[in-house]
Design a protein around this nucleic acid. Sequence first.
DNA 1: CCGAATCCGATTTGATACTG
DNA 2: CAGTATCAAATCGGATTCGG
Lengths: 148, 148
Amino acid sequence: MARTENVETHDPAAPREVGTDDLEDFSEFAPDVFQRGCSSRQTLEIVAAKWGVLALAALRDGSVRFNALRRKIDGVSEKMLSQTLQALERDGLVVREVRETIPPHVEYSLTALGTQVSDSLASLIRVIEDAVPEVVEAREAYDARKPA
Amino acid sequence: MARTENVETHDPAAPREVGTDDLEDFSEFAPDVFQRGCSSRQTLEIVAAKWGVLALAALRDGSVRFNALRRKIDGVSEKMLSQTLQALERDGLVVREVRETIPPHVEYSLTALGTQVSDSLASLIRVIEDAVPEVVEAREAYDARKPA
DNA sequence: CCGAATCCGATTTGATACTG
DNA sequence: CAGTATCAAATCGGATTCGG
């Protein structure tokens, strides 16, 4: 019974929206993404969250500033990008470097681990982008079968 | 302004929770996951959704029945698994085969495209599982820096 | 200019119950 | 067995506000 006791409906003092689950620590066991609570599953949920893939992919170019990332990733809000980057930084996939200039200058880049992950994602993205015609066709066929 | 006019707070008659965005059709353009509305981005959001990765990974073993998938993917609800599989089927990554017996017998398997995607995901998962010790350490360091 | 914190509606999620 | 329906709760995400 190490689950949270936080039963307060919608606690506003909890800025823990992306990838900050606090289930049990499974780090002693063989990592298995299929087991919930496993660290690897937690990391997967951050990486494979709505903005995680795109953030990691966008960082392959090298070091990128916050607003440059924001512009590149169409549709992301400041809040979600910020949260996503924080979660990725916490898991050691991304580094955040602050240059104390005026105006401030913050750059994000990949760690070695982040680069490995990003490489896998790049291959995933390539497959998906190349498959667009096929996917569109599949969708049309599916929707024709199930118009309901 | 082609966005939905569905302003009714929480319309229960809308079973469109996974991967059924209805933005514009970008299929004429060069696919770019960074552009919202692009088909490739829609597919990515299904694949890289909370349960998409695990479902595709779980299907690498071959043809699997619904409840077997459900047992393998710890924590998934029937509803989400069902929605995820439907979305994946719609995009042509998964095939659903029904055997009209009593009791019913439904098997899911990967298409050729689904297999390609799943291969990328397998590599991603391997990286993440192998990195668990590193990630756990990174988390501790991060939390020590920012206990607030 | 960079980004974090707060507020709050909308969407997604998941337990449970129910159907073919 | 393989889902769908229902509803409450959690999460998301945009707008705005605040701080360095």
